[in-house]
Amino acid sequence: MQDKRAVQVSIIVILTIAVVLVLYFTSTPSKDNFRPATPKTTNIQAVQPIEQRPPAIDINRSWPTQIAALARRAMSYTVIKSQLVHERRSTLLVVITSPYANGYEQFLGTAIKVARSMAISRNVAAVHVLLEPNEVLIGKGYQLADVALYTDGKGEDGQTFNGVYWQASAMQNPYSPQQLQVASLWFQHQSEYLDSHGKINESALKRYIAEQLNIPDFAVKLPQSNRLPLTIDNQPSD
């Protein structure tokens, strides 16, 4: 009985020694692991003085500070129509009104804001925005602001890059209420005062408008549109 137990103990001891030896030899690091690492070489270059560094790339030249400042003067507006037209280049034409815009910067700012938002939302390179005084006078030449955005910097022709991103002009002051009334009545009723040759009988039309507005005939005058161009920084002016 004792011999049998002695044999069992011997087997256990032998197995234990075998396991220890296996663990020792399999976990011992290779000599290669103790080789010193190759030192890294650092390529140190002299830092150029600021005045000798190349100029930074302007990644958003179509949104200069001057234009962004005007856009912050934008007032609420209504889009009357928008359509893709093909003049010298494919352009999104947008017609808007803004009864709250009053003065040069607000006229420009409102049209500029519309141009940029339309260029982004419609994914077009050229946008032309016309700010009209009212719906009756659309297309009659009385725009309060006329703004064009060319996001590719190729200007109106769209053929080659010339650095022209914006072209803009606006009235310095709004038309007076009487001027708008006269102009609106004129274009609404001019077809009713045509002579036999198809020409407008201006005297008769003026008398009609004067009666409607209770003003003298000589006060019935169509307003003159005189928009002031905006000279934009970093862009060739006309």
Rank of each mutant, 00 (worst) to 15 (best):
T110K: 02
L21M: 13
Q45M: 11
R88L: 13
Q66F: 03
S27I: 11
G103V: 03
Q52L: 07
T78E: 15
P54Q: 02
V19Q: 07
Y100N: 15
K40I: 15
S27H: 10
N123D: 12
K81Y: 10
R73T: 11
N102V: 05
T110E: 04
R53V: 01
A56S: 08
V20C: 12
F34K: 10
L15R: 05
A115G: 03
I59E: 11
A56Q: 08
Q83R: 09
L108P: 07
T42P: 00
I80P: 00
D32V: 14
A74R: 04
A126T: 06
N123L: 09
Y100G: 12
R88A: 12
I96H: 05
A111T: 07
Q45T: 15
I120L: 10
H86G: 00
L21T: 08
E87S: 08
L92W: 03
Q66V: 05
P54V: 02
T42E: 15
V19T: 14
L93H: 05
T26L: 07
I59P: 04
R53C: 01
Y24K: 10
R89C: 01
S27Y: 09
F34L: 14
T110S: 08
L84E: 10
A119V: 02
P54H: 02
T91C: 03
Y24P: 00
S76F: 06
A125T: 05
A37V: 12
V94D: 02
I44E: 13
T38F: 12
Q48D: 11
G109S: 06
L108Q: 07
Q66W: 02
R72N: 08
V19W: 13
P29G: 05
P39W: 10
V94A: 01
L92N: 01
I59D: 09
T38G: 05
S98D: 04
L23S: 07
A56Y: 04
V95G: 03
V79W: 02
P29K: 10
T38W: 08
V95A: 08
P36R: 12
G103R: 03
P54G: 01
V114F: 05
S98M: 04
F34R: 11
I44M: 12
T91W: 03
Q106Y: 03
R35D: 14
A18W: 08
P29T: 09
T42S: 13
N123Q: 12
N33V: 13
S98K: 01
D32W: 14
D58P: 00
Y77H: 14
A46M: 13
I120S: 05
R88D: 13
S62I: 00
K113H: 12
M118R: 01
K40D: 07
Q106D: 06
E105M: 09
T110N: 07
V47W: 11
V114W: 01
A18E: 07
R89Q: 05
L93D: 04
A126W: 02
K40W: 11
P39L: 15
S27G: 08
S82K: 14
E51G: 00
S30G: 13
P36H: 11
W63K: 01
R73V: 00
V95S: 11
T26M: 06
K81N: 10
A126P: 00
V19I: 15
N102K: 09
R61L: 09
T42D: 14
V94H: 02
V94T: 03
G103D: 03
Q48V: 12
